[in-house]
Design a protein around this nucleic acid. Sequence first.
DNA 1: AGCCCTTTGAAGGCC
DNA 2: GGCCTTCAAAGGGCT
Length: 376
Amino acid sequence: MPQLSSGGGDDLGANDEMIAFKDEGEQEEKIQENAFTERDLADLKSSLVNESEISQSPNAAAVRRGHQGEQRGFLDKHREHLDGVSKQQDGGMYKTPAYPGYPFLMLPDPYLPNSSVSPSSNKVSVVQQSHGMHPLTSLLPYSNEHFSPSPPHLPTDMSQKTGVHRHQSQDLSGYYSLPPGGVGQITPSMGWSPHSLMLGPSGMHPTGIPHPAIVPPTGKQEHEQYDRGMYVKPQVEAKREKEPKKPVIKKPLNAFMLYMKEMRAKVIAECTLKESAAINQILGRRWHALTREEQAKYYELARKERQLHMQLYPTWSARDNYEAGLSGVAGAKSKADWGKKKRRKREKQQDSNTGGKRSAFATFKEEAAPAQLLQI
DNA sequence: AGCCCTTTGAAGGCC
DNA sequence: GGCCTTCAAAGGGCT
């Protein structure tokens, strides 16, 4: 198993090493990249705005009018934001060998009505929270309060599955100590956020530690009906409750996913876009435009997420969610459906290899922003 | 209702 | 070890 082969150290993030970008002329390239990103974002935005204008968006014209300034403002803000982060993390993970603990501690009140941890947060609270918040807030539920140096609920030997061994990582308490004033930019909308404390019974880890990675088998985590104790059972779910199913433990988010969670709202606000596919494209490009240090922040976060996940669910394997087809909305897909999906994907790939049917979005991409969009 | 699209990264299986 | 596949989030679009 890969985990085993990681050398047994506490570095579960062996794979979190930074992607080696071109070293040659890197700075220049980075600058060009940023400049390009601006241009490119403008292209994408304007094409998308045009498109939405056509499709009767009443704000589209106004958006386009304020387009240039807005974009400029956003990029500046973005840089300031990142600068701020860098400053906050000065002496952080790459300067200090022993990572002193993350400055992640502004605890947003998850119970505030406007908090983006609300079920509808991603739809409504488009402008907010990301600033001044840090993704690691999501780790708060696993602070010292829950984690004693040797969690009593964790067996010394985690291996329960044959061939599965998820080693016990080092004392995490150091990671989750709460340095005074250590306020990062935590987005409460990120997966492992304090609101997970409100998880219903199905979101409760057997150890008693609630975890957002555990979602009811009936649906996507993002629906978050368990939020703030305001959970009201939809009929369908009430039905399903009759036949108890195993709670779903989701994969921990990787660095890019964490980045997306944090930045999505910003991009949506700035670009007046909602289509996730387009947003994700922009985010993907921005991700590449980040400096190594900036990316490192997210790799580190992701590493910690994995560590926690591993400690909480030592026997969990990513494979667990494969055949169950648990990522679907219904969450109750049959193996047959899963097989179908697999086949479809294979066929799709074959199609693309043989110049088969292309997605509408791919077509749109090429029409909207020809060569530039695909660069970086 | 449920899948698709789109992104990157992690993990697991297969050869 | 390299390659391939699946899943993680998100939400509009499409069937």
